[in-house]
Amino acid sequence: MRTLHAIGACGAVAALSLTSGAFAQADSIDHAKADAEFAKFRAEMEASNPAELNEMKGEGLWNAKRGPKNASLAETCDLGLGIGKVEGAYVASPRYYPDADKVMDMERRIVWCMVEKQGFKFEDIARKPFQGPNDANAPEITDLVTFVAGQSRNMKFAVPMKEPKVKEAWAIGKEIASFRAGPFDFSCNTCHGTDGKRIRMQNLPNLARPEGAIRGVLGWPGYRMTGGVMLTSQWRMNDCFRQQRFPEPKYVSDTITYLLTYMTGTANGQLYKGPGIKR
């Protein structure tokens, strides 16, 4: 970050600060200090997270009449709290949707609405569901998820764990987290099943505990400064499996919903701060 001072007209003094996505990798050996430095930077950036641009676009998409059925999501889509109601919906998902007879995480539910209510083709959405490093814009679904997530800012996670199907999804997710396969015998829990471990410099949350699970779901969807891309928890799960050396999980599949139910359900009761910002 650099600051340049400029004297404006009418005697006003203006200080201009530019934030660049490219910043030097910490070469310090003091992990705690490096973390503290980044926490400071993050606090500064949270006040002006570029994710807000995706929220704005998502809000426009939510309200617009679109798709072959020329319907708006605001008028047709029930995220679980009633048609068109977005406030608090993100922190109350994943949840069971009787109309689809499925437990769904938020991204999956919005995709479901786009297909069922607006008439979009699932294959068109699923073809490229994540923003790539060379893509100037995030996919529409990412903007929509970011908008909906922003409408749960500073609310507590409240996944309806008493609902039997949600409870079952949580239990299945817990089992998937411990499933070892692939050439390296990795499961989610190989890295995320014990306390206080690190891969290289990266601290690993233990997803089995509320304080670890919250670190797995907090900050998603998140704006990644490296490359300037907006990514959702669907992407995060996808990339975990990549690093696990697994094949690629299908977009908005049960497996991902189960894992997100396991993590979010375990994080229940803790504060969600809204779309996040990442390195």
Binding site: I172, G182, P183, R242, F246, P247, K250, T255
Partner: peptide, 24 residues
């Protein structure tokens, strides 16, 4: 839950690049 987890995993992956389904 474990049985359903195995079913889900068998169903929910696509091969990509060198990561073929036999890895599961």
């Amino acid at each position: 839950a474990r049985a359903k987890a195995l079913e889900a995993v068998k169903r929910d992956f696509n091969p990509r690049g060198q990561a073929s389904l036999d890895r599961l």
